[in-house]
């Protein structure tokens, strides 16, 4: 028996909107720790790892570890039917091949339930090795989204270079080139507006903007984004989900030939 009640149902709606275009089908894993997902895109270039900790749910009942295969497009369709203020409850009986999403309006005057068929998904669970990152960049998530969007109108790839001076996002395309430099800026009114560069070593990596733009669909989940870079290993783009966990995107770099 599984029953997860999330008062801030909009979080789950936002999570689905941020991953449904990157991954088609995925297994949601439910354990005492929380509700989690790990899935790669079909080309094995990007991976998404989600954790919503059990403490973040108003009610969390998961009698035994369960893995539920879902089509994320269909799940997003169902969650779109929940209001932004609705409380969302996920329910599944042992051995059932369906999951039920229950939406309650905040005043309890409207209750809806949507039942979705589960699917069998063969997915490999990948071990993500602990990595030491050369540079960790924390910046407003809306600023990062703006940069990725702007640069993708000029080129297909971005070079992210971190130096003592700051972080530089560069692209080139048929019509020209573009460079955006963000300097460390911690003298702001609100901490979430700061740009912080933790930089033990300079690093420069190239990534496909198409994927980074896809990751920025998670922007509504968090005011800030944390980007961890190290030479020749995947970048991690992390959006923290307040009091609940995180959504992390891993992206393999482009390699010079």
């Amino acid at each position: 028996m599984l029953e997860l009640r999330l008062v801030q149902g909009s979080l789950l709606k936002k999570v689905l909107e941020s991953i449904k275009d990157l991954v088609n089908d995925a297994n949601f894993d439910c354990s005492a720790t929380g509700f989690s997902l790990q899935a790669m895109d079909s080309s094995h270039v990007a991976l998404v790892a989600l954790l919503l900790r059990s403490e973040g749910f108003e009610h969390y009942r998961c009698d035994r570890n369960i893995s539920m295969g879902m089509n994320l497009g269909n799940m997003a369709k169902m969650l779109k039917c929940a209001g932004n203020d609705d409380i969302i409850t996920l329910k599944a009986d042992d051995g059932s091949d369906t999951v039920t999403f229950m939406f309650e309006s905040p005043t309890q005057d409207k209750i809806a339930d949507f039942e979705m068929r589960l699917m069998d998904i063969d997915s490999e669970h990948l071990g993500i090795p602990e990595a030491e990152y050369h540079a960790i960049l924390i910046m407003p998530s809306a600023e990062f989204a703006r940069i990725c969007k702007d640069l993708s109108s000029i080129g297909d790839t971005v070079v992210i270079s971190v130096t003592k001076e700051g972080v530089k996002f560069s692209t080139r395309g048929d019509i020209g080139t573009a460079n955006v430099v963000c300097r460390q800026n911690t003298t702001v009114d609100k901490p979430e507006e700061a740009t912080v560069i933790e930089m033990p070593e300079p690093v420069s990596l190239t990534f496909a903007l198409r994927y980074l733009n896809s990751f920025t669909k998670a922007t509504p989940l968090s005011n800030t984004v944390t980007i961890s870079l190290s030479s020749e290993i995947p970048v991690v783009v992390e959006y923290k989900i307040a009091e609940m966990g995180y959504i992390r995107f891993y992206l393999a770099p482009k390699i010079e030939e």
């Binding site: 790669m40 080309s43 094995h44 270039v45 990007a46 991976l47 490999e124 669970h125 990948l126 071990g127 993500i128 090795p129 790839t157 190239t206 496909a208 290993i233 995947p234 891993y250 393999a252 770099p253 482009k254 390699i255 010079e256 030939e257």
Partner: peptide, 14 residues
């Protein structure tokens, strides 16, 4: 020119 790498060589099956 640059080539897109994949995640397979970075992450192991667990």
């Amino acid at each position: 020119s640059s080539r897109q790498s994949t995640l397979d060589k970075f992450f192991q099956n667990s």
